[in-house]
């Protein structure tokens, strides 16, 4: 688990928590420059970061959804009304017209960093 990085050449990297703190297949929420970002660690150890705002309910809750897979796509289901979002693209798999923003996330020396 050395380099867990989804490449996106923007912004500055902000350290938010220790990687070991993250429970596999569970999310946490971080606050970066006023934005709520949900960070997930999947079963294989890979990290994903998406907006915490659930576009269907208007509540900031996606970090509390259940992580899983649909086909080979890693997903999170909104805890409010169970719409499923791709953790890779942020697109809602139940309603592709809706999506949530995704953010670059990586691990540096045991710290999780996001770029927002």
């Amino acid at each position: 688990m050395t380099e867990l990085l989804i490449d996106r050449p923007i912004g500055t990297w902000v350290p938010v928590c220790s990687y070991a703190e993250l429970i596999p297949e569970r999310g946490v929420c971080v606050l970066v420059s006023g934005r709520q970002i949900a960070i997930f660690r999947d079963f294989g150890g890979r990290l994903y970061a998406v907006g915490n705002l659930d576009p269907f309910s208007g509540a900031h809750v996606l970090s509390r959804g259940i992580v899983g897979t649909r086909g080979s796509e890693p997903t999170v289901a909104s805890p409010m009304h169970k719409q499923v979002f791709s953790l890779v693209t942020g697109v809602c798999l139940d309603d592709p017209a809706v999506s949530v923003p995704t953010y670059p996330v990586r691990v540096r020396e045991g710290r999780v960093e996001v770029s927002a």
């Binding site: 429970i23 297949e25 569970r26 309910s57 509540a59 509390r64 959804g65 259940i66 409010m80």
Partner: peptide, 21 residues
């Protein structure tokens, strides 16, 4: 342990989620 990752948000926070989170 691993059980934590299986729970719906209600069981995960041992409380009932409401419409504003």
């Amino acid at each position: 342990g691993e059980l934590a990752a299986l729970q719906d948000t209600n069981d995960h926070f041992l409380a009932n989620i409401q419409k504003n989170g």
